[in-house]
Simulated assay, not measured.
Amino acid sequence: MIELKQVTKQYGQSTVLHNIDLTIDEPGIYCLLGRNGAGKTTLLKSIAGCQNITSGQIKVAGKAVSTAALDTGVSYIENFAKHFNLPVWKLLRIASEVNGAYDDSFAAEMMEQFELDGKKKFNQLSLGMKTMVSTIVCLASSRPVILLDEPVLGFDAIMRVEFYEMLTESFRRHPRIIIVSTHIIEEIAKTIHKLIILDKGRIRFFDTLQSVEEKAFSVSGLKKDVDAATANLHVIGQDAVGGLVTSYIFDQPPKQEASLEIAPLSLQDFFVQMVGHKGGIRA
């Protein structure tokens, strides 16, 4: 279990995380979404114990997390992760030797699936292949918490599909908490169980994708009709073009009227409305 209480992180005078309360208490694949600079990497590094927070408390499996902790139970790989410039097979062997619960068979299968040359040194690999090696090392660790920061950077479309399959297979073999930070929203939707949206250092949303499918809608029509239909609903954004208005809601959809057009929001559109956009009206 991951538990954050009133977590704040400051860099000088800049506050990156603002009094975050978050509890993740069951295994699953969680997607962490946020705009550039929202604090995603800072949040993941803090949970992993790679840096200390300014105030508050973070616990993983009941143990306080900090840079002083010998083993946080967390395996964390950030984008552009660096390793010793050794042959890939030697990096995997070292990872296995320092982690008693390392899944050698999973690592070997993934190496074969992605056609990785174990004899190549790490720095000889493309960006995508470097990221894949780092991800395999992380997932094969079998630790109770896995944190992946932008793991699909440098991947082509086929590699991204294979990555999501690898993520699903890893979770099937070792159910645990896996948090994936990504910008490619729609692709990962089929893989994840819950969604976390971070906006300007604050948690804006934490729930299942099912709740988005059931409650996220756009309501379009004349302003007076839309305003009347959404008066008692949670409006997360609004666009206006001429006399027509579209309100974006996270609530039960209003009753269908001939004057209204009601449509479900895609995950990407829901995210855009939750974090705001130019021309939008924040509720």
Rank of each mutant, 00 (worst) to 15 (best):
V145S: 02
I184A: 04
S141Y: 00
K190R: 14
V152K: 08
H174G: 05
T182V: 03
V145N: 08
L153N: 15
K190D: 07
D207E: 09
V145R: 03
R143V: 08
I177R: 11
H193P: 12
Q210V: 09
S141Q: 13
T182L: 01
D199C: 03
E187N: 05
V145E: 06
A157S: 15
D207H: 07
D156M: 09
P175D: 02
F205Q: 01
T191R: 00
S211M: 07
I192C: 03
I185F: 01
F205N: 02
D156I: 12
S170F: 14
A189H: 06
G154P: 10
G201D: 09
R204S: 05
E186Q: 12
L148I: 15
L195W: 07
S142R: 13
I203L: 12
R173T: 10
R160D: 01
F163H: 04
S211N: 13
S181E: 00
M159I: 04
Q210C: 09
K190I: 06
L147T: 07
K194C: 06
E162W: 06
G201H: 03
L198W: 11
F206C: 11
D149W: 11
I178K: 04
A189F: 06
R160K: 14
V145Q: 05
R176Q: 08
R143T: 07
L209C: 11
G201Q: 11
D199N: 07
S211H: 14
I158D: 14
L195K: 07
V152I: 10
F155M: 15
L153T: 09
A157G: 08
R202F: 09
P151V: 05
I184L: 11
